[in-house]
Design a protein around this nucleic acid. Structure first.
Lengths: 227, 227
DNA sequence: CAGAATCCCATTCGATACTG
DNA sequence: CAGTATCGAATGGGATTCTG
């Protein structure tokens, strides 16, 4: 891919000092922000990203990774041997897009047209927890909650005013949600589907401290819709 | 313009429940969010918007206005006679993009590549004040500050933890900044250019309570850059 | 598997001209 | 002023193929 002329950015964008314009030049392209989102919880490989974003072609992913790298949002890195695979990782500035992604999510959730039952990626679900949590109550939960979604695992450790999430084994978790697909868990948390029904019919498994699990999911709710 | 098929939105977008994706479908198109930004401080006419966004053609503006209206972000309205002109105005949900626009701006400002000396529209400058204000000090300013930029006027009335801005005559202001272009004022506030130099060489005029004016501009600063 | 390279079609854009 | 109509050029994206 030919590098774009640096004075004009992606082509002929708006030469505007406003941050809105500048930011849209960098991450406003189709797929860009979704790719950034997938990297938000840690470095991933080309094929991981592709698998999480159905509809994104290899060509476009290659192009977006290149322009995001050029913009300084992410870097391409070789993992040390053994492994020695190539991964993409957000820079510090790239990670600083999280509030941005959260605002996008909050705004979308207020739309009456937003449909929370559409498919979503594991990372997308985990990040939505951070967006929609009631932070005045996160401190009341004691214990770690694990999620195993397909072949990805995450650990959530609620604390006062915070909700740290990291990838990792769920052995240390006190309660674990296990499901083949993120949309199942999203259905329980956001669409109010009964948990026992999801366990019987959708392949959800809740392990460990079930009471903890239920108090945990009660932390999350969608905002009221706006006209 | 043919309306898009409603099931696929703008064409073939990502069918993802994540708010990021949904929001990008609605306002992620080129120019869309800049148009929304121009409406943020009140309804405007077609040609007002066009004049504020150099590089935006009538064709594209027409298209964007149509899709933003269809998405429920803005509405098209006839002003009552006399006047009887057509204006575009944000819906309640459209106005709810302000935190989003602010996050975009905050993030952009942390980039080392961001150039605050580029041209910007009057609305863009006024909104940046709300984004960059030090809200622990806004309450210490007593008095109204007016801005006249080209032929647009705004009134800012700082209060504890808030910075309301509205269009309006600056007669009631205790201090007024007057400049032919927003970039001049931005240079003083964000780029640290000396105010007296701007007055002598760039056509800036500061009227009224000069001490108030200087304490007011000290409320604003750009964040530290990230790698 | 991780991408680069080609090919080709669909869409989009900008410029210009036109209209109520 | 507030758009609409048209046209040629540029861009974008999917499918496919190739390579280390």
């Amino acid at each position: 891919m030919k590098l774009q002329n640096e004075t004009k950015g992606h082509g002929k964008w708006y030469g505007d000092a406003c941050g809105t314009a500048f930011a849209m030049e960098l991450v406003g392209e189709r797929w860009s922000l979704l790719i950034v989102r997938e990297l938000m919880l840690g470095a991933r490989r080309f094929s991981d990203i592709r698998a999480s974003l159905p509809g994104l072609s290899a060509k476009v992913l290659t192009e977006r990774l290149a322009s995001l790298e050029e913009a300084g949002v992410l870097i391409r890195r070789q993992l040390p041997p053994p492994g020695k695979v190539q991964v993409y990782e957000l820079t510090e500035w790239g990670s600083a897009t999280e509030p941005l992604i959260q605002e996008l999510g909050r705004w979308a959730a207020k739309s009456s047209a937003h449909d929370p039952t559409l498919p979503l990626s594991p990372v997308s679900l985990m990040l939505s927890l951070r967006t929609m949590a009631d932070y005045v109550r996160t401190g009341t939960i004691v214990g770690k909650v694990g999620f195993v979604i397909g072949d990805e695992s995450f650990l959530v450790e609620p604390g006062p005013g915070e909700l740290p999430i990291r990838r990792g084994e769920v052995k240390e978790a006190d309660a674990v949600f296990r499901a083949p697909d993120a949309v199942i868990i999203a259905g329980g948390i956001y669409a109010g589907m009964p948990w026992d029904e999801l366990e019987q019919e959708a392949g959800l498994v809740i392990e460990g401290d079930r009471d903890l699990a239920m108090r945990f999911v009660a932390l999350f709710s969608l905002p009221d819709k706006l006209a």
